[in-house]
Amino acid sequence: MYWQPPHDLDAALGSGEWRTRLQDTAEAIAASPVTSWWTSPIDLDDQHLVQFLDGDSPQWEHKPTLTGLRTAVDGLSLEHSGELYGSGTADGPAAGKWLDGTWWSAADMAAGGVAVDWKMVSGAWWSAPITRPGVSTARSIGQPPLPTGLVFVEDSFGWTSATSWQVSATREVRVLELGAPEDWMNLVRRYPLEVTATTKRGDWWRTTGRDGSWAMPDWPLVAEDWDAVHLSVAGYLTTAGRALPVDEGTATVLAGWPPDATFWLADVLRVAGGPTPWRRDTDTNVWSRA
């Protein structure tokens, strides 16, 4: 997870005999024909948007908002550089932290005489172009087809109901492919946004153990050249959660981006099918049509 140190189990599995065993297993899985699609680019003919439901009614329908995406993306530079959180510095980023079960903003802490320590604050730990409104889609797999967005979830809230919609592009689209760590590093190098003086410094330090300058893509600039960005499963497995070098003193982390997910930066989509209701069996953790 991108906002806390690795668990003891994570550390144990990443070293010694267990690391060797997992490496052998990973190589066998990667060589299997079943996972050959993990390196494939976006499938524009098979894209599904998943809406998770807070209630217990899989029949609930809410047609997705597919417009206003570029306008929402244009606000991401301010959001991730910290300006929307208030003023912050490399030694005291703004936003806030949890204290005794209550979220304190930077202003609250200052007013209450609480010292702001960048190692303690937490906030927008993700570097994916997550917006409101926003659209992320992925393909379906298996028979009967199951949208991978149902099971490839970075930060699950334990949903048991969902609705999916098939979407398609209204015109030819420019899709940037992320299939390896180098693709993400090159994206940040081409469209850099400095985020050291934000809550990402504390969050990414906790999860990677690295302290120093941090950067991520400046998504409004990316959106000038690309309509969407797709992260393959292989790209996710080799890139997500790692402190990757951008230059001699700066690193980046790909965070909050599920495998095979495509984030859309322009208003180029339409609903092509659906809605399809889904229900998750809490005993088996398997999704099926409701």
Rank of each mutant, 00 (worst) to 15 (best):
D155V: 04
W98M: 10
V222I: 11
T276P: 01
S168H: 10
K63G: 04
E79V: 12
A243R: 13
L254V: 00
T25P: 06
A243C: 02
H230Q: 06
E61M: 15
W264Y: 13
D91S: 06
V173A: 12
T71A: 11
Q143W: 05
S57Y: 11
A111C: 10
M185R: 06
V195P: 06
Q4T: 10
H62S: 14
T35W: 06
W165A: 02
A266E: 13
E224S: 00
P33F: 05
E177K: 15
L150F: 06
D155C: 12
W60Y: 14
A107G: 15
G256Q: 02
W264D: 00
Q4P: 05
G14H: 14
L69Y: 01
W165D: 05
W3M: 13
W287H: 00
L49Y: 03
V233S: 07
D108I: 07
A111H: 11
S40K: 11
A261F: 02
E83D: 09
T284S: 14
Q23K: 10
T131W: 02
S15N: 06
R21W: 12
A90N: 13
W37Y: 13
G82R: 04
P58Q: 00
W264K: 06
V114Y: 12
F157M: 12
Q59N: 14
A215K: 00
L49C: 00
G273R: 15
L13F: 13
V116K: 02
S164H: 06
D218W: 12
D54S: 15
T239A: 09
E61H: 15
A124W: 08
E79F: 14
G68T: 00
S232K: 02
L84F: 02
E61D: 15
K200P: 05
E177Q: 09
T198H: 04
R270Y: 07
L99E: 11
P245R: 04
S232F: 04
A255Y: 00
S136K: 04
L237C: 03
R270M: 06
R21C: 04
Y191M: 14
E79R: 12
L76K: 04
G212S: 13
T276K: 06
A234P: 13
A261N: 10
A138E: 03
A115E: 08
A266N: 09
T170A: 09
V286I: 07
M109P: 08
L221K: 09
V135W: 03
A115M: 10
V114M: 07
L231C: 08
D24W: 14
L265G: 08
A223H: 11
L44Y: 08
W125I: 00
D211Y: 01
H230K: 12
G101R: 05
T250D: 10
V34D: 10
W3E: 00
M185L: 07
A95S: 04
P277F: 15
A95M: 01
R190Q: 14
E194A: 11
L150M: 02
V268G: 00
S36G: 11
E177I: 11
F157I: 13
S81A: 15
T20C: 08
W184V: 09
W214M: 06
T207W: 07
L254N: 05
A234N: 14
P33K: 12
A31L: 08
A11N: 11
V114D: 01
S288G: 15
W125M: 09
S87V: 07
Q4V: 13
V229E: 01
W37E: 14
E177C: 08
G14A: 08
T250P: 05
R19N: 08
P144Q: 09
A234I: 14
Y236H: 15
V175Q: 11
T39I: 12
R270W: 03
E248L: 13
V268N: 00
